[in-house]
């Protein structure tokens, strides 16, 4: 009767697997909190946001301000988004409404390829190509701008691919309707198609920002890693992710907890972007 055994075993197995998968994220956030607990319990959390500088290793007067890094993260992300979104959207529009079929296919492949290039390679390329160029304009080269350019290139395919998907998903008859009213092609696209696809495009941009803010290796390599509030786009900066990557290797006790707290801040940031993304289609 073995053959006619019920599916109970399978059900338990899959349920167990699903439970573990679903709990993983809770486990990860929980671990961050446990590891970061000393920061919260000792009241350092206030220093975390109020101190103007980051010198956790200093014996005499340690300072724990995450603000410069947080600002750096946001600045690099916003710069990257500003650089990537216009060309990303334009590329998608070109691909759908203007380019001949062979070129569109080629562009598809290229975008997928670009999306698959490891971030470490973007970082490496930024370090060996972009940084020297910026260095000639204004030293030292490793800067907010370099980070923005490299991240921008990195998230470009995300913006372009999601925009394309959003544009393809809108009802074709909308655009035909516009054409029937005698609107010009650009008018059809910018007044009808883009607004209709707005929520999809925005959600793609949020996704791109999530990638940018969480990126570590590329920014470690090109941003210069100096934990100060930047005054121009040529200043070197150090985003939160870089700080964790650079200091985790030698951090001890209290310092370690600070880095875990920084990790927690990152999760909160990306979680917030996720919430925005989720709410968008409802609007």
């Amino acid at each position: 009767m073995f053959r006619h055994r019920n599916d109970r075993g399978l059900k338990w197995l899959l349920s167990g697997v699903a439970l573990i998968c679903g709990s993983l994220v809770i486990g990860i956030v929980g671990f961050l909190l446990v590891e970061a607990w000393p920061v919260f319990s000792s009241g350092q959390i206030f220093a975390f946001f109020s101190d103007g500088a980051w010198q956790p290793g200093s014996d005499r007067e340690p300072q724990f301000g995450i603000t410069p890094m947080l600002l750096a993260s946001l600045a690099v992300t916003l710069l990257a988004t500003a650089l990537a979104v216009p060309p990303g959207i334009l590329a998608a529009i070109f691909q759908i409404y203007y380019s001949p079929k062979w070129l569109a296919t080629f562009q598809d492949r290229a975008m997928e390829l670009l999306a698959g290039v490891p971030s470490i390679i973007f970082g490496f390329w930024g370090l060996t190509v972009i940084v020297p160029i910026i260095n000639q304009i204004r030293p030292p080269g490793q800067s907010l701008l370099a980070g923005g350019i490299v991240l921008g290139l990195m998230i470009l395919p995300t913006v372009s691919l999601t925009t394309r998907a959003a544009l393809q998903a809108i009802d074709r008859s909308l655009v035909y309707g516009g054409a029937a009213l005698g609107l010009s092609r650009p008018r059809q696209i910018f007044s009808i198609a883009l607004p209709a696809a707005r929520s999809g495009i925005l959600s793609g941009c949020m996704l791109a920002m999530t990638r940018a803010i969480g990126e570590t290796m590329a920014v470690v390599m090109v941003c210069g890693n100096i934990a100060k509030i930047p005054h121009s786009i040529f200043d070197p900066v150090r985003p939160v992710t870089s700080t964790i990557a650079l200091e985790m290797g030698y951090a001890t006790e209290g310092h370690r907890s600070l880095l875990y707290a920084a990790g927690f801040v990152l999760v909160v940031l990306t979680g917030f972007l996720l919430l925005l993304r989720r709410r968008e289609p409802v609007l």
Partner: peptide, 22 residues
Amino acid sequence: LTRSVDLLASIPSIVFGLFGMA
């Protein structure tokens, strides 16, 4: 489950590093 998978997907890789290390 889908919500926690979404959240998991949005977590930066460095944070996975922190978790893995701990």
